[in-house]
């Protein structure tokens, strides 16, 4: 921000001796736009914090460990324990499913499918990334939930002993964290696939041809020359997907039957996530209740900020030494 104002133009020679007013206005405008963007980010943090602090200071429960969300009670009691747990668990399930499959599809497009078919698939998956989340939510609630009932019962039958896959009431609908995780996985598949595919496409052809020339099979080419090169790109793609899964609102709100219960049984229709809780409780909330929701939104904001920032740092570090992006 303290850069020298007078010669903002790129040519370092004495071209900038005449500074025209138009130049100054335009460079000021564009710099202003950049600064505005930073101001908006700062404002998001500041405004959310201001409202959140006023809410948390009146919270009679522990904000971090309380299960219930009842800011309208007197005294108000609310906490994010269930929400944080639900958000993390559903996102982890989503990542466990989506990352290997996305990587598989990306490799399928770049290395296995016939070239023309691969192009078409890549295009279609690009388009699918644009399907609005509420449509996934609608499909998840009306189609996926009934169809996952069988899977739920099967898991309960055979894997009940793992505690995780124990279903307390076998007849309850599959509106559980597991279903949410599966739906989120389907939602973030296109993004992770797209970014991974772009990274894999950048793997130098020479490395792969060298491996082939040494007699490597196709899988060995991928394992020895493609994956090591693409690893950090795939990691950051996954973290972008994770950021999206963490913040996803509507698809969770339609599928999950929420309740303030923190349960290790991911088949039980209980739990909640940050954004689902905000949408669900917003309608009935008074002004204080909204501040409480803003407080939980601030936590979500910080979490996604950290995840995305980390993803970007990995990409940035990668750029410095790869040389393929130049």
């Amino acid at each position: 921000m303290t850069t020298v104002e007078t010669p903002p133009t790129a040519p370092p020679r004495k071209a900038a001796t005449v500074t025209r007013p138009g130049d100054r206005i335009f460079s000021g405008l564009s710099r202003g736009a950049g600064i505005l963007l930073l101001v908006v980010m700062a404002a998001i943090a500041v405004f959310l914090t201001v409202r959140a602090v006023s809410a948390i200071s009146k919270d009679h429960g522990n904000f971090l460990t309380t299960f219930e969300w009842t800011p309208s009670l007197n005294p108000p009691v609310f906490g994010i324990a269930v929400l944080a747990y639900g958000t993390v668990v559903s996102s982890i399930i989503a990542m466990l499913i989506a990352v290997p499959i996305s990587l598989g599809i990306a490799l399928f497009i770049t290395h296995y499918a016939p070239r023309r078919l691969g192009g078409i698939i890549a295009y279609v998956i690009d388009l699918l990334a644009a399907v609005p989340s509420i449509v996934y939510g609608l499909w998840g609630a009306l189609f996926l939930v009934p169809h996952l009932k069988g899977l739920n019962l099967w898991l309960d039958d055979y894997l009940s002993w793992t505690v995780i896959f124990h279903k307390s009431d076998p007849n309850s609908a599959a509106r559980s964290l597991l279903t949410v995780g599966i739906l989120l996985a389907i939602m973030i598949l296109p993004i992770i696939t797209n970014v991974s595919r772009e990274v894999i496409n950048q793997v130098p052809k020479m490395h792969q041809e060298a491996a082939l020339a040494l007699g490597a099979t196709r899988w060995e080419v991928i394992r020895l020359s493609v994956l090591p090169f693409a690893r950090s790109g795939v990691i950051s793609a996954s973290m972008l997907g994770l950021g999206r899964a963490l913040g996803e609102t509507m698809a969770v709100a339609t599928v999950l039957s929420a309740s303030p219960v923190l349960s290790a049984h991911i088949l039980d229709p209980v739990g909640g996530t940050f954004s689902q809780n905000i949408v669900a409780k917003f309608g009935e909330a008074d002004e204080f209740g909204r501040d409480a929701l803003i407080a939980s939104g601030l936590v979500l904001f910080v979490i996604t900020l950290l995840v995305n920032g980390a993803a970007r740092l990995i990409i940035a570090r990668r750029k410095e030494y790869s040389g393929a992006n130049a």
């Binding site: 999206r244 913040g247 904001f301 900020l305 995840v307 920032g309």
Partner: peptide, 18 residues
């Protein structure tokens, strides 16, 4: 880059608190 990852609900809450 970081802003790309701001959840939509957080953007909504920001305008609300604004």
């Amino acid at each position: 880059d970081v802003m790309t990852g701001v959840p939509s609900i957080v953007a909504g809450l920001f305008i609300l608190s604004l």
